[in-house]
Structures are given as C-alpha cells and as structure tokens.
Write a protein that binds this DNA or RNA. Structure first.
Lengths: 345, 345
DNA sequence: CTGAAAGCGCTAACAC
DNA sequence: GTGTTAGCGCTTTCAG
C-alpha cells in the first residue's frame, strides 16, 4: 500500500505538503501540487479511508437493510439507492434481515462497528431494544414501513389510498361485492390497506368479503381465494393487498381455472415482470418504488450526512401516492357471470 | 462514541488491559475480563474498525459487483452472498456497473480506498486497465463471466452444456428445424451458448435458424422471433439463450398470438417468477445460481481472505451445470402444425 | 497479571 | 509555501 509518506519521501517534501497538495489546498504552489498529484497517480496511491475516519471524517458507507433482496419491492429499492449513492461516491452496503429482529440487530452491530455514515432501513415488526439504541447513534431513515421507536424520519407509500383507489375502480365498474385478501400483522401498513378497502366500500355501500391471514405461508393465499369463490353468494371481484399474495393468488387462479375477468375481476399489488402477461394482463397497483427510494436516498445524503450538524432531528414523513395500472383483469360487472361465460365461448 | 480509553478510565485500569480483556486474552484474570466486558456492554461500546484496520487487520467488507440488481440472475446472487457472508460477520457491499467499464472503475476506486477485504464481480466486457490494476491489489473472484485479464479465479455455469441439453430435448421430441435467438458480444459466454446449440444440432443432423443480435435493444428480440416465424420453412421450436431475450420473446409471442406449444415449442433461459404461468408453463433452463453463489462466497472467504497468506493465486475455475425444467411449452413435433391447431380447437 | 508507550496513515494546528 | 508535530482508537511489543 502506497501512503502519503511514500510520496513525500520520493519527492523529498513533508507529508503534510503531500496531504495538502492532494486536497488542492490553495496554500501549496501550483507546481508542487501537480508534482504530487502526478507522483500519486504513478505510484497508484489510494487514500486510506480508515485513517481519514480515525481523524473524524465520516465514512462513505450507507447501509440498506431490507427483508429479502429477491422481492421486486426491495431490489427496485436497492437499484435506485445504488444509482443515487454512486453519484455522490458513496458505497452501498446491503443487509438482509429476513424480517427477523435478531438478524437486524446482528447487522446493526456490524454496521455500527464499521462506522457506517447512515442507514436506510425497512424495519422488522419488533426491533430489539439494542437495535433501537444502536440506530440512535447513526443517522437513519425508515423506508416503506415505519416503527415508532425508530425515530420520526420516514419515507413511505400511501397504501390506504392505493387500495382505496383500486377498490373504487372496481366499484365504478359496477361491482358491489368485492373480496379482499390481506395480511394480519398488527403493526405497519397492513391495517392501512384494509382501511382503504373499507373506506371505498362504505362510500358505495357495497359488500366486502375479507380474508385476513398469514401470507408468508405459501398455501394460505391459495386457500383464501378458494374460500372466497366457494361462498354461495360470491364476490365478483377481488383486491389483493401485497405482492406476495398477488403471486400466490395468480398461481391459484390458474389452477382453479377461474375465468378472469369474466367470472372474477382481479386487482393485484405491485407490478412484477410477468404480471403483464398473466391471463388477460393484470390490472394492478403500480407502486412508485424507484422515485420514492431516490428521494429517500437523496434526503439522507443531504439532510442527515452533511458535515454541518445543522441536520435537525425533526420528524419528517413523506408519503408517495401510487397509480392504478389498468389492464385486462378487470371488467364491468355483468348481471350473471354465466351469461358472460357463454358470450365469450 | 465509547472507546477503550473510556472503559479504562471508568475501571481505573490501562487501555491495554481493556483491549486484552475484550479479546479474551488468557493473560488477563477472569475477574478483570468479566468486569471489562460488563462495563463495555453497559456503556454500549462497539469496537472501532477503522482503528483496528489502521493496525493492519482486514476489513469485513466484501464487495459484490453486478450489472443490475433488478435482474433475477443478479438478485439471486446477491441474496445468496448476503446470507453466506452474514454467517461469518462480513458486510456485503453492492455495486452496480450497468455493464459499463467506467462505472466499474469508479466503484473499484471507491472500494480500494475503503480497504475492502475482497471482491466478487461479474466483470464488464472490457474492463479498464486501471480496474485490472486495482483488482490485483485485492483478493477477488469472477462470477458467471470470465475475463482473462482479471486473474484465473472464477465460478461459472456451463452455458454450452445448458443450451445443448435444451436443444437435445427438442430434438428428442422430434423437432428437426430449431430456431435460436442469442446475443452478439464477442467475449464471454454468448459464444459458448451458440456452440452448445450447434453441437446438439450436428449430433442429430438437424437444421438451425440463428438470430444473433443486440438484445439490450428492447425491440430486437421481438423482431428476431418475428423473423423466425416469417420464414417460408419456419422452425417448429426455438431456444432462447438469455433471461432478457426470454422475457422479450414471451411478450412478443403473446402479441403475435402464436400458439405454444402447438405452433411452436419454446425453451426459455433462467427461471423467473411468471415463467411458470406463462401460457402453458415455460420449459426452461434452470440455472443453479444460488448454489453457485454460495460456493463462490465461501471460497473467497476461506481461500482468499484467511489471515495466513497461504492463499495461492493458482488458477481455479468451477463450472456448475444447470438442469432443464420441463413444463408445457415444449411438445412432440407433429407433421403438420395446422393439424395440431385443429385438434385443440 | 497489568501498565506504558509506540505506531498504523492521515489531517490540522502551529511553527517558520 | 512548506515543515513539524500531535493525535484519532486500537493492537502489540516491551517492561515490570
């Protein structure tokens, strides 16, 4: 490893001169500056950030903590963050929590030791007390989810409105009995989504059939849609409230041979590769993940990490709104589904 | 930030004693060790890795460099790496190159300065000379692709065999005229795949129609499949040779209304969510990405990063084999495609 | 068993 | 315009 000392020795000058020349200090003569910078290039000098950090400067590491990078939600976030941070010469670290508080804590410990500059996290349901304490010592923002113990800065999506818009779309198509499949966790955003669904129904005095459960069980969603379709008076449309559920229900509907949108209109959640070509094309809630992430990344960089400690700890919440992507899986309600079936046959 | 000095002051002992106690040095009495460790816990001490690194120890950062984390190929890799590194208390950094040498270089500069412990990279087509030099100073492995200038350690997939197996499957179903859609870049693995295709055809003395081009253009693949289907004597099956191409062709086939597998048997590349429910279910080459990545990560950790510098620079190449996932998009060749169409109608 | 002190590479305050 | 020096937090001799 080449150090400033090596450069100094080679040019017969002092280390401090080298340091100043490398940072283009105006006190150093232009000539010396050039000589130093050239020598640095020739020797392949790279500044040792460990040493610089020891002197108090911040690291250029920003951590992103997500449940599982394989979900479209999260890899889209990671991509947007990577681009955003790269532009400012920051390095992105990636931690997967698997939604487990212990893994979250383990990562935070590791990150704290590495003097991370900041953390962007999708928190687990119930973070450990130590996680909370560790986060207090590093600038951070919550993304997508929001846990009260983790400080007031967060970027999220208005899920209530997203689901409400989706439901309204079905109502405007004439549907008056709509199914809903959603998750059960108390905290976070699941309740928001359900509330959006209920709000829309109420506005039209329509009927809802809710299936609430544990979508992390791979078979649960399939069973939920079967339940809905088995009712004597079954819903003519269904709203799915997470990407995971959408995946599982789409697969189940193919197996069941349900005709979409003739027998059932379907609105999914999120837009993954494949949703476009599922059956007649899936009408779905398009989440503004990329924009949200970029906004979040920039905000962390500019409001929380800038040298001047003017950065306030004031609560800050940004809620993005999503848009409905209308494709073929939703249609006007016909009086009799059977009639519709005949017509297309 | 709590330091060893703080702990020392609080307990009225020397910093060196604290340091030794924290690393469970046998020379320190059990009692002192416990007192120190308890104090550390109470004060919320975390060891400052910057300082430790300055003393010569390696960082716990391992970098992963991929073209774009949003592709299934790469997020699967990232996931496997994250899990693998986490187990050994390493931190994964994620760099996106967008397949552009300049971005690759920029990231490598940043990583070099941060004293990264090691690099796992999917190299760009033509890495900069400086990238090559930088990589020489850090332990690294190439993954998936393999560029001769970047050292002899690599983990890859036997693409030639993957495509050959896929083609053979079609041949065994009786197809004797098979289309192939593939990429054009000279280096790396594209040629391997094409060779696999040709080898299989030759074994059966069958006819091939190759469309070779630039799949990064979103419309190119669609045009390629149209070309194949427009020929007077058109192929009865087609082999797709990248994930990207598979996505684009599947979309195009839907638009064209081609009946699969009656009019055309199709074999895709990679297995993404959605391939399973595309049309009759896509027969595809299932790439052993997760296993490969885990193997690669473990290898870097254990062969290249261990303190003892016994780590050899010997060339090492691991080629994994993939398996064919047979679903509904491939069928036995009928004499007349039209007859098949009638039968199902 | 424990303490004192040096030094990793860099920056910044203080000379000249 | 440039040199000297101290010190960031830790590990590691070398002394006791």
């Amino acid at each position: 490893m080449v150090t400033t000392k090596d450069i100094a020795k080679q040019l017969n000058i002092a280390v401090s001169t080298v340091g100043r020349a490398l940072s283009d200090d105006s006190r150093i003569s232009v000539e010396t500056r050039q000589r130093v910078q050239e020598a640095a290039r020739n020797l392949g000098y790279v500044t040792n950030r460990a040493a610089r950090m020891l002197r108090g400067s911040k690291s250029n590491l920003v951590a992103l903590m997500v449940p599982d990078i394989r979900h479209s939600f999260y890899y889209k976030i990671a991509h947007a963050m990577a681009e955003c941070l790269e532009r400012e010469n920051f390095i992105l670290t990636l931690s997967e929590t698997g939604d487990r508080p212990e893994r979250e804590l383990q990562h935070l410990r590791e990150l704290a030791g590495s003097q991370i500059a900041g953390v962007i996290l999708i928190p687990t349901m119930r973070p450990h007390a130590e996680s909370v304490r560790l986060l207090k010592s590093m600038p951070h923002v919550q993304l997508i989810r929001r846990h009260p113990a983790l400080g007031g800065q967060s970027f999220g999506i208005d899920f209530a409105r997203a689901v409400e818009d989706a439901t309204r779309h079905l109502l405007q198509l004439g549907h008056r009995h709509i199914g809903y499949i959603g998750a059960h966790d108390q905290l976070f955003t699941s309740m928001d989504r359900l509330n959006g669904f209920r709000a829309a129904l109420q506005a039209f005095s329509a009927k809802g059939s809710e299936q609430i459960g544990e979508p992390s069980d791979p078979d649960w969603s399939a069973e939920a849609i079967r339940q809905l379709l088995r009712q004597r008076s079954r819903p003519t449309a269904v709203v799915l409230s997470s990407v995971r559920i959408t995946h599982d229900v789409l697969r189940a509907l193919r197996t069941l041979g349900t005709s979409v949108p003739d027998d059932l209109s379907v609105i999914g959640f999120g837009d993954e590769p494949g949703f476009e070509w599922w059956g007649p094309g899936l009408t779905t809630v398009d989440l503004p993940v990329a924009d949200l992430s970029t906004a979040c990344g920039l905000w962390l960089l500019h409001h929380r990490l800038k040298q001047d400690d003017s950065a306030s700890d004031a609560a800050f919440t940004n809620l993005s709104t999503s848009t409905l992507l209308v494709r073929g899986s939703t249609a006007e309600m016909r009086k009799s589904p059977a009639a519709a079936r005949k017509k297309t046959a």
